[in-house]
């Protein structure tokens, strides 16, 4: 029994240690960001691997999520003779919720895991230590560009997801199910508010981008430098990111729309 409580205490200590390290690490990374801005080529390379390579999955899922929403929404709305509101349903659910959240989850799976694995392997093969030997700060050279790239790409990807989702909904709703085209857009425009809905969606995606990339680079940097350690860190990145995205989404939604 006493052992069990002690185990709990040790777990608590470890948790707070990790949290503290993660925060210190984030601080160092933020300090390192100006160093990236003077060498934009590092950033461009990371934007390519984090952002551009995530683009296909974002495009595909955006279109399909929009199409499914239109199909489901239509079936429910047509019972009330309110299928003109389809545009509102699709746009609000995508712009407010699904855009940032699904993009965040996909981003964690596609880009976050890759970041962790890459940085973890760099650590396992002692490339990070090698950089330090050459007086190159790995945080400036390796971590900060990746962090910044994730932070920049995430809102862009979420916006692409949302726009394509709405066009996917348009394709199914107007093209296949015969909702009036004018009603689809005009109802949407009258109900979706730029500040309340679009801006808040962008803020959500910014927050998710920050958190997911932070978790990914930290897990990579903090990994146990063995092949097993890297694999565990990669798993943890995806799990923690999904957890953080869904949890934060609730908090942000409560703050933005709950009042």
């Amino acid at each position: 029994m006493l052992d069990w409580i002690r185990g709990l205490g040790r777990g608590g200590f470890r948790f707070f240690e990790t949290l503290g390290r993660a925060n210190l690490f984030a601080l160092k990374t933020l300090v390192g960001i100006p160093a990236v801005l003077v060498r934009p080529r590092l950033l461009v390379a990371q934007l390519f691997s984090v952002g551009v390579l995530s683009l296909p999955i974002i495009i595909l899922s955006g279109v399909f999520v929009g199409m499914v929403l239109a199909l489901q929404g239509y079936n429910t709305l047509v019972d009330f003779g309110a299928e003109e509101s389809l545009g509102v349903v699709v746009a609000l659910s995508i712009v407010r919720e699904l855009g940032p959240v699904v993009t965040g989850l996909l981003f964690a799976g596609r880009a976050g895991s890759a970041l962790t694995a890459e940085i973890g392997l760099m650590k396992a093969t002692e490339q990070l230590a090698g950089m330090e030997m050459m007086a190159v700060d790995p945080i400036h050279r390796v971590i900060a560009p990746r962090f910044l790239a994730g932070f920049i790409s995430m809102p862009l990807l979420a916006a692409i997801f949302a726009a394509l989702g709405i066009y996917g909904g348009y394709f199914v709703g107007v093209g296949l199910l015969g909702v009036d085209e004018g009603a689809y857009w005009s109802q949407m425009q009258s109900q979706v508010d730029l500040y309340d809905d679009v801006y808040n969606g962008v803020i959500k995606s910014l927050v998710f981008g920050l958190v997911v990339t932070w978790i990914a680079v930290f897990e990579g940097y903090d990994t146990v430098p063995t092949s097993e350690g890297v694999s565990r860190s990669t798993t943890r990145t995806v799990v923690y990111s999904a957890f953080a995205v869904l949890g934060l989404d609730f908090v942000l939604t409560a703050l933005m729309f709950g009042a």
Binding site: L47, V95, S153, L156, I160, I166, M188, Q189, L194, D197
Partner: peptide, 19 residues
């Protein structure tokens, strides 16, 4: 192209979707 597409998508959201 990624950045341009992202900004274009934001533009669409602002102009076409919202009020």
């Amino acid at each position: 192209m990624l950045i341009a597409a992202g900004l274009a998508a934001l533009f669409v959201l602002a102009m076409k979707v919202s009020n």
